[in-house]
Nucleic acid binder design. Structure first.
Lengths: 180, 180
DNA sequence: GGTTGCATGTAAATGGTTACATGATTGT
DNA sequence: ACAATCATGTAACCATTTACATGCAACC
């Protein structure tokens, strides 16, 4: 699933500028499971435009730079659905946090405690944010995915909260390998 | 966290060949949150060797190609711990599955049903595998991380099972945009 | 007879990200 | 005075994946 398809997906929900598409991957509904930078979004948008999968209209703004607002075309809708019909690539997860935690016994307990505490806060914040956005009415798919995000992040936070103390106690008994 | 650190982490648990390290990222305890291919592992191992962070011994095998078994050195242990003390990069998740599901209303319900069913099986299989490996005694960090994996994957599978029917029903009412 | 597993390695291609360039406005 | 937000875009850089190269043994 390349950046072009990702942009098409965002645009299928609503017209947007490149800048706004970026936000959808930063804070928005896609931030949890896909990401893209300006360096990939702007070229993708130009390519989509050249292929006739999106249309552009320039919008002047006062006190703000001009915007290019992109809309998905019928051809673009078809292309999006075709991409959605291909077999999804396997999920990819990259977590330095879990990698570090899996060697907790080599590290100072206060560091482990801090990492876990920060992570709990992060998960709770994400759950709150998702619950808030679930108050506005969304398409069935988006609602389903958001609900799954809430369930999974809540399970993660709950686990960290309920097992934190035991891990800290266990690694507290072992000798340190590094100064704090 | 680059591939060199990842290899150092695997080797801190036990001596291994490049081939065996690959397996740790494919099926093993790290497969859920980091991955690496041969094309990155073998060069990383050579670099680590040149830096004195690992040592190598060649092992002849009958009916199998020769192996190069790598061991972490004291210097390597120090380097690993130093890496583990740096701030972890933010987690990255890339899921075509969730991206596709968030546009479920554009797609044929049987496809959505199949995708969800396959995913449930996958999560349950992973949970079973992790639970099995939790019967052998592991360091505190690894046990903690494995437990979190089980909790999170179980929550994901439970959510998919309990909300599957409702999603299928909701998208079944809308007109199809593509032939099955 | 074809696939999978074992085992190491290289080179090319890829698909990004990071950093840079530019500039007004608003908030601290 | 400095950082952040809005807004678009390019080019250099990067790490990794993919594909290739090689070959034997076991299994179906």
């Amino acid at each position: 699933m390349d950046v072009k398809t990702l942009c098409l997906g965002v645009l299928s929900r609503d017209d947007a500028s490149g800048y706004e598409i970026k936000k959808a991957f930063e804070d928005g509904p896609f931030s949890c499971f896909h990401q893209a930078s300006f360096g990939s979004i702007y070229p993708a948008l130009n390519a989509l435009s050249a292929e006739g999968l999106v249309s552009v209209r320039e919008q002047a703004q006062d006190k703000r730079p001009d915007k290019k607002i992109y809309s998905i075309t019928p051809k673009g809708q078809t292309a999006l659905v075709a991409s959605l019909m291909t077999e999804p690539a396997p999920d990819v997860m990259r977590s330095d946090f879990l990698f570090i935690l899996s060697f907790a016994q080599y590290l100072p307990p206060p560091r482990i405690a801090r990492l876990i505490d920060e992570r709990i806060v992060w998960y709770r914040t994400m759950v709150d944010r998702m619950e808030e956005s679930s108050r506005v009415d969304s398409p069935a798919g988006a609602t389903f995915v958001r609900g799954m995000g809430i369930a999974v992040y809540r399970a993660a936070a709950d686990y960290l909260e309920s097992h934190r103390a035991q891990l800290i106690a266990e690694i507290g008994d072992a000798p340190l390998l590094v100064a704090e």
